[in-house]
Amino acid sequence: MAYALQQLINGVALGMIYGLIAVGYTMVYGIIGMINFAHGDIFMVGAFVSLISFVLLSAGGWAAGPGAVLLVLLVSMAITALYGWSVERIAYRPLRGSFRLAPLISAIGMSIVLQNFVQVSQGARAKPIEPIIQGSVELWHGNGFSVSLSTMQIVIVVVTLAVLAIFTWLVTSTKLGRAMRACEQDRKMAGLLGIDTDRTISITFVIGAALAAVAGTLYLLRYGLADFFMGFIVGVKAFTAAVLGGVGSLPGALLGGLLIGLIETLWSAYAGQDMFLLRELNPAYKDVAAFAILIATLIFLPSGLLGRAEVEKV
């Protein structure tokens, strides 16, 4: 029981990170109807910028305190947002209103570019980083097991919720948010009503990238590693989260992220254990589990958990 609770906590922390990335997918899909294939790699860039910033700070002799983490977070958000903006500007905007498959191929190309750009500039080896946020709170203790909540997990949950709160306020209560929602409903009409749709779309990418940077920073802090290929699999899982929650729905993205994080963690923890049917499962298939959920969701629940159902127009 204690073990299960511990896994639950781990799963929620991981799920928060997926949720942050999923929001970026959902926003972009909502507004221009394309899967931003490079979004997982934007997350990777965010992790790298944080990594470099941390190393730079420690080389400069700054103590690794909350101030340093906050500073790194902001730097990473800014630089990664610039990457998000550039990707949209170079690879997607010229293809607006063009042939349907073109942006998708362009996005795949962009994903390859980002991965290999980081590989070339930062090397192919995985980069480890010393733990920065340490310590934990023991919640429960007894018969050989204990349930603890690490400071890192607290930070993940607090930062994610804070960032998403700001973001929700932005989307629901500001002029910018209104423009974004208008573009999502009907881009042509929004344009006719005087909304600068290009600018709104750019801002959407910027915000999505900034959220991915937060996710990248948290991921780096939690797992202590960054490599140029990390964006692909995390990206697919985050996309799964977005689909599971219902594309276009922001609470759905977070909910989907939490579910995927939980499923993945529980699969790793329990598959192969000597209990009931679990011994038949292979922990190595945790990614397959995520993909299988993606496929199952799209087939049985195409509008996701919190998405709007669409009626086929004839």
């Binding site: 010229p94 293809l95 073109a102 191929i105 570019v113 290999n116």
Partner: peptide, 13 residues
């Protein structure tokens, strides 16, 4: 791969 990806984007655009 970097050039390959870039070529994909360029040709699409």
């Amino acid at each position: 791969m970097l050039v390959f990806g870039a070529a994909m984007v360029v040709i699409m655009v």
